[in-house]
């Protein structure tokens, strides 16, 4: 009788599970970026570790913009993608999903630059930075799919 009232998501949005998956990837990226930011501000005086090259990457000249670590921008980006997608899933706001997906384009471009710097300039790879590169790439690919999805398909 009242199904039209209990389903807030309009037919133009992808299925909820897909949005939740998108949000989950963004949240993993958020945790990773917050960790790197916390290490930047609270961690010990950096040294070189036997196990990984994170110190070389995170203490390089490319790791900060002024005094702000790039990871903080990353944390803000992942949080925005998460919240925009939640807004889309909860309130059926298609514009919020489009905004989230557009953010992933910018982030993917930044990711390509950062991976290039790690491989060819700093010549060291940081595991946590690679996790972030992976999540932003997944979000970018999923974002294209989500935008394409809304054009004709819906499972609702």
């Amino acid at each position: 009788m009242n199904s039209e009232h209990t389903s807030p998501m309009p037919l133009t949005l992808p299925p909820r599970w897909l949005l939740i998956l998108f949000m989950s990837v963004a949240f993993i990226g958020f945790i990773d970026a917050v960790y790197l930011t916390a290490v930047h501000f609270l961690g010990q005086t950096p040294g070189c570790s036997l196990l990984e090259g994170c110190e070389e990457v995170t203490t390089s000249a490319y790791a900060t913009v002024g005094f702000i670590p790039i990871s903080l921008f990353g944390a803000a980006y992942y949080l925005l993608v998460f919240l925009f997608t939640l807004l889309a899933a909860d309130g059926g706001k298609r514009g919020a999903l489009v905004a989230a997906v557009m953010l992933t384009w910018v982030a993917f471009a930044v990711t390509l630059v950062l991976i290039f710097l790690q491989l060819f300039v700093i010549k060291a790879l940081c595991l946590y930075c690679l996790i972030s590169a992976l999540t932003s790439t997944i979000l970018f690919v999923m974002g294209i799919f989500l935008l394409h999805y809304k054009k004709g398909q819906s499972v609702l």
């Binding site: 958020f30 945790i31 917050v34 960790y35 916390a38 290490v39 609270l42 961690g43 010990q44 949080l79 919240l83 939640l86």
Partner: peptide, 20 residues
Amino acid sequence: VAAVIVLVVYGIVIGVMKNG
């Protein structure tokens, strides 16, 4: 959602401080 985000950030900060 806001509470989970705050808890996650708090947990990470405490974890990093403890690890340090």
